[in-house]
Design a protein around this nucleic acid. Structure first.
Lengths: 229, 229
DNA sequence: TCTGATTTTTTGTTGCAACAAAATATGAAG
DNA sequence: CTTCATATTTTGTTGCAACAAAAAATCAGA
């Protein structure tokens, strides 16, 4: 039997320095290290990560391909500052993609996954009580992607990741003024209920609500900040 | 009034060689120059486009970020050969994204756009009569994106473009065996009717049908090819 | 003819220096 | 204090050579 080449991306064995730099930068973005408007330069990234300019440049270019960084001038890349129109568009896209992933996640969800989701939700609640917003956002991400990965649609999941990379810094940048203690708790409970019921439609609806709630809060924080400063 | 930096990407004035190489490669992909399984190397791209290895490498990396090319080994990038699972996933994504774009296109569609769509549809019909499948596919792309761009959701449109980049070569690769003279004609007529009626739901449905029809044909061609060798 | 090891060639990656252009700092004039 | 022109520094891009590793070709043995 002749094996046709498969487009799975699993083959790459030794991650190059460019890959490593890209991963590291993504990690920092997700952790809220950078704030909207922060500037990224090839040489600063190279020095920070201890590599030469070539892999640093590779990493920045890949981030730009994800729209996780943005060209504000010919020689100026920065963490995007999302305006209302950007925020609206990314929300529409997120609802479409994450709703799709959610709907396909129902069939492969086991009790263990549900237990894990409860653990994560407890972590979110605890982090919010302590005012540790970074931790809350991180655990929130874990919650969402635990479900999305169940869809077994890997390309879809990575597209969703790049949307999160795009909005992530804005969430951190507008914290804690838009954070309220009960953020998303009810929506997440509905997610878990829908998974128990194996109800794909309800699951999609729960995530859509969660995304929309986050959108409204972010938009309001954006407006308040616009008027005060 | 202080101007906050905006993430619009409009600033870049002089396209770098890397940009040019990337655009050229995308153009070739869309035109069916490459076939699934074709190999791409830094040096061959560099020589073909008359640039050094750095911009050639940039272009390939950006294509890989779009999943328009794929790593089949540590030093082997090739035009993806989509299996049934890949095809199913990309179809689900396309329906979600292109349906969304379509729905938002209704409000800014004018009579001129509709006239233009009729012209394009005539071109498609003529190309199919002549057996010029390359031209038919190209005009089909023009038809879809003329509508999608009306959504004024630029990031969404570029995400859709990268899906087309991903499946395009498979369409060309499986031509003409899956091409039938009446491909998509009825669906496109329904698109135009929905635009005239300003019916966003019907428009979405028409595009979803079109995408699904293409998917079925492609899948069948894939299966036939699998059995015949 | 086929198989498997070995040699040869091809290939991606990386660092780096030079260049042009953009961003920033500086300072003079109103 | 602001504005504008000028000077300085910083920055992205590009080509290239060296290297290690992978892929392809070659060939010996059965």
């Amino acid at each position: 039997m002749s094996e046709t080449p498969v487009a799975d991306g699993r083959h790459r064995q030794a991650p190059s320095l460019g890959d490593a730099a890209y991963s590291e930068l993504k990690e920092r973005l997700s952790r809220g290290v950078y704030r909207p408007g922060d500037k990224l330069t090839v040489r600063s990234v190279a020095e920070t990560l201890g590599v030469s300019s070539t892999p640093a440049r590779d990493a920045i270019n890949r981030l730009a391909a994800d729209s996780a960084v943005v060209y504000a001038g010919p020689k100026t890349v920065l963490i995007p500052v999302l305006g209302e129109a950007d925020l609206r568009e990314v929300t529409l896209i997120r609802i479409a993609l994450e709703g799709l992933a959610a709907q396909h996640s129902v069939q492969s969800c086991t009790q263990q996954h549900i237990d894990k989701l409860w653990v994560i939700q407890r972590n979110i609640n605890a982090a919010l009580e302590n005012g540790d917003y970074g931790q809350a956002l991180w655990q929130n991400k874990e919650f969402h992607f635990l479900v999305y990965r169940l869809s077994r649609l890997p390309h879809l999941v990575s597209m969703i990741e790049s949307q999160w990379l795009r909005v992530g810094p804005s969430f951190y940048g507008l914290y804690p003024e838009f954070a309220e203690a009960k953020y998303g708790v009810r929506n997440h409970e509905m997610v878990i209920e829908a998974l128990i019921d194996q109800d794909g439609g309800a699951l999609r609806a729960a995530f859509e609500n969660d995304i929309r709630d986050g959108y409204r809060r972010l938009r309001q924080a954006l407006r308040e900040r616009a008027t005060t400063g």
